[in-house]
Write a protein that binds this DNA or RNA. Sequence first.
DNA 1: TAGATTGTTAATCGATTAACAATC
DNA 2: TAGATTGTTAATCGATTAACAATC
Lengths: 209, 209
Amino acid sequence: MSGDEKIPDIVIGRLPIYLRELRRLQSEGGKPTTSSRELGELLGISSAQIRKDLSHFGEFGKQGTGYHINYLIDQLSHILHLDRIWPVALVGAGSLGTALAHYDGFAPRGFEIRWIFDNDPGKIGRQINGIAVQSLAEMAETVARHKIQVAVIATPARAAQEVTNRLVEAGVKAILSYAPVHLIAPPEVQVSYSDPLTELQRMTYYLGK
Amino acid sequence: MSGDEKIPDIVIGRLPIYLRELRRLQSEGGKPTTSSRELGELLGISSAQIRKDLSHFGEFGKQGTGYHINYLIDQLSHILHLDRIWPVALVGAGSLGTALAHYDGFAPRGFEIRWIFDNDPGKIGRQINGIAVQSLAEMAETVARHKIQVAVIATPARAAQEVTNRLVEAGVKAILSYAPVHLIAPPEVQVSYSDPLTELQRMTYYLGK
DNA sequence: TAGATTGTTAATCGATTAACAATC
DNA sequence: TAGATTGTTAATCGATTAACAATC
C-alpha cells in the first residue's frame, strides 16, 4: 500500500521492536533473510500483523523468500529517522540520571547524551561520563542554542512538570520521562514514560493474592 | 457492572495510572473528592473511559459528587493486590541495577527489593543499599525457598533470556525487564519491559528529519 | 430543588486476523 | 515446477465515545 494515510500510533510503536529483533538476527549472522512468520514467533506477534504493519510503508519483502534482514533494517531505520545522530539532553543527575549517562547502548544507536542538567550545587560542574553537569538555570538557553529536540527527564516527580515546561518552551520535541507523574505538554511534543511502579502494579493484578 | 467477565488488559494497565494521579490529588489535600472529568483532564483521558474502566470492578462513585479520593485509592489498591508487601528480587548489579536498588520509591508502595544477584565475583558479597549481592548460582534456590514472585532484570541483553528461564523455573510470576530484548516466557508469567531506546526510536518517527 | 455526575447502553471507531491470489 | 511467503482484502474482534436516565 504505502500511501500517505495517517499511520496508527500503535503501528509506529511496534517498529522499534521489529528493528531490535532484526538487529539481533543480523548479529547472529545465521542467514540473510527472515519471514513475517519467524519474526512473529520470536516476538509473540501474528505474522499477519507484521506484514500489515510493514505494508503501511512499502513493499519490503519477496514472495517465497521473506525479507532481507539488512535491507529491512535500513528501511525501518530510515522510517524512524534513525539515519542520523540525535543529540540528547539529560535532566537530573541523581542515581538514575547517572546510570543513564553511563549507559553504553545509546550512542551506537545514534542517541548521544551531550548535556546534563541538575540544580544541585554539589553536582554542577562535576563530570559524569565525560560530560560536565550544568546548572538548570542554563538549560533553556543551552537547549535553544543547540536546537536540542530530544530530552530525558530523570528528576524527582515534583520537578518534572516545571522541567517539561521549560524544555518545551526552549524547543524540545520529544521527552522520555522517568519521573512517576503524567506530564502535560502540547500535542506536537512527544512524551513517553518509564515508571517501574506502574508496571509492577499492573502485573500484580494478575498474581493471586 | 462489576461482573466476572475477563477484564481487558488495557484497562488493567490504566488502573495504576489512575491510582498514581489519585495519590497526587490526595497528597495535595485540596478536597476529598474528584470526578471522572477532572481525572480525565489531568491524565489526557476521556471521562467516559475512566467511568467505563472503573465500572468493570464496581460502583465507586456517587452521582453529582464523583469519587471519594481516599476510598477509590483503597479500592484500586485492593484490585491491584497492593494491600500487601511484594518482596522483589533484582538481577544485575551494574549501574542501572544499583540505581534501582537505591530507588526510594519502591518500598513506600509495597515493593521491597530484598535480594540482589549478579555473576561478577567483584560484586558478589558487596552491599548495595544494605543488601548483600549474591551469586547468580544461588538465585534459583533462593527464589524458590522464599517463594519470590516478582523479579526485576537489569542484566545485559545477552544474559536476560537465561536469567528469565531460571527465574520462571524457580517460580517467579512477574518480571520487569530493562534488558533490550524480547523475553520468551510461559503465558502465565507476566513480563513487562522498559527500554529507553525503543521509546526514543518511536518518538523520532514524529520528528522531522 | 437545580446542578452535577455517575454507570450503562448503543453506536462508532479502530485494530487484528484469516484467507488467498499473486508471485518469487 | 512446487513450495513458500508476500501484500491486501474483507471479516471479525475489541476498544472508545457519545448520550442519557438515574440519582445524589
